[in-house]
Structures are given as C-alpha cells and as structure tokens.
C-alpha cells in the first residue's frame, strides 16, 4: 500500500528527515515512536502533502501511484487521512457543515452525487456513537474552544466519517483520559479491515495495549533507527531512548 524509500524532507532549507525507508501493507498497523523533535510529525505532514515540508530526495508510492505528485486534497480523496497532533480551529464553520463539504468532495472525486441529507445524518449518527461524540459538540464550530481531548476525539470522528484507506494518527492519544483513550482505540479497531492500514505515532506504550501494532519503529534524528514487533514498545517504556541513542 505504502512504500517510502530514502525520503529526505527539509523545512526552510533545514533537513529534518534524512532518509526514511518504510513499507506498510494492507491490514497492518505500524507504530512510530521516538523522542521529541525527531521528525515524526514531519513525516506525517510530508505524506499528507503540506507544502512547507519540501521533499528533497526519495520516493513515496501509495496504492501503486507516485504520492508526491498528488495535491494534498487528492491524497485525502484517495483515502489518506491525517489525524493532526494539533488540530486547528475554524471559527464559524460547524462540524456538520465541514464534514458534509468534505464528504461531498470525496464523492465528487469518485463521480458520485452529493450525499442526501438523510443519509448524511444517519452516517453521522452512527459515527458519533462510535467515538462517543455528543451532538452539542458536533453542532459547534470545528475545534473552536474544544478541550485538548475533545479535539482528538473530533479527529477520530472525522476519520470514521471519511473511512480512509491509510490513516496516520499523530499523537491522537495525548491529552485523552483513560476512558476516552479506550473509546478512541475501540473506534480505530472497529474501522480496521483487511484492506486498510494505520500508522499510529505515539509516545506511550499504553495506547498500543489497545491498538496492537504489527510493527514498532523508532524515529531518531530523522532516521528510523530500529524496527521490531510490538515488544519493542514495552522495552522503550522501560528503558527510554538512551540505549538506542548509544547503540547508534
């Protein structure tokens, strides 16, 4: 599904990612861990196509296509979803309106008619339940005045609404209380299918107890310095990152 080869990414001429190799197959869950500032969000943003993250070298193939040639909106329409570490506020735009616009853009891309009001409401009700979002929240403007946890739940809600093929969740667990964490993990697990995949970026082993990864990668100073099975997360939790840094 996704093949990243020797990916280099710079911001303002400063190289942040220094050659990333990663392959994600359908049905898999990958976890990416690593100390602050190591480049995890940079990787996520570069995959989603944020302009200020310039790819200077390497290639990314997504669903047998050159991902790097696609506009950010086309990447999204082709099923790539990014759950933001810091979701932005869009004052005055209700979540309902925002989601309806997004879904209709996805549909238009697939050559489908806009969704009917009743289908949309039904879809929305279903997904709200899945992540335990209340109507009082979905009637508000996108992320405006949301608590940290509410913002993260809203990201998962949007993911559920858009049913992506590849979801990249950037620290969706931080800021969530235990109950919310379980709900979010449950949501992710319910959306798991043989033909989609998830990359979870996290600092905590705790999330991985609920969303069990097939692989764990450690990103350090712009490189993946270690890849292993789910037991790696436990090891990191115990020992921290120092042993990896020294191993290097």
């Amino acid at each position: 599904m996704l093949q990243i080869k020797d990916l280099h990414v710079s911001i303002d001429g400063k190289e942040i990612l220094k050659g990333i190799d990663l392959e994600v197959k359908a049905g898999e869950v990958h976890a990416i861990m690593g100390p602050n500032g190591s480049g995890k969000s940079t990787l996520a943003a570069a995959l989603a196509g944020r302009e200020m993250f310039a790819v200077t070298k390497g290639s990314v193939t997504y669903m047998n296509e050159n991902l790097l040639e696609l506009s950010p909106e086309d990447r999204a329409r082709k099923g790539l979803f990014l759950g933001f570490q810091y979701p932005v506020e869009i004052p005055g735009v209700s979540i309902v309106n925002f989601m309806k616009t997004a879904i209709n853009e996805h549909r238009k891309f697939k050559g489908l008619e806009p969704i009917s009001a009743s289908d949309f409401l039904k879809h929305m009700r279903e997904k709200k339940e899945l992540v335990g979002l209340t109507s009082s929240l979905t009637n508000r403007s996108v992320n405006e005045g949301f608590s940290g946890g509410e913002k993260k739940k809203n990201e998962i809600f949007q993911m559920a609404m858009l049913e992506p093929i590849l979801a990249i969740l950037d620290e969706t667990d931080s800021g969530l209380d235990i109950d919310a964490l379980k709900i979010v993990a449950q949501g992710v697990n319910q959306l798991r299918r043989k033909d989609n995949a998830t990359i979870v970026i996290t600092h905590y082993q705790r999330l991985l107890e609920y969303i069990v990864p097939d692989f764990v990668h450690v990103l350090y100073k712009g490189r993946i310095v270690k890849s292993s099975g789910k037991e790696l997360a436990l090891e990191l939790e115990e020992k921290g990152y120092d042993w990896i840094k020294t191993e290097e």
């Binding site: 989603a48 506009s71 950010p72 329409r77 979803f81 933001f84």
Partner: peptide
C-alpha cells in the same frame, strides 16, 4: 486552516 481543509479533501 487551509491545509486542514485540504487534508479532508477540500481544495
């Protein structure tokens, strides 16, 4: 804000 919308498929 624009990138957030782009990422949801909105040009």
């Amino acid at each position: 804000q624009i990138f957030y919308c782009n990422q949801r498929g909105i040009d």
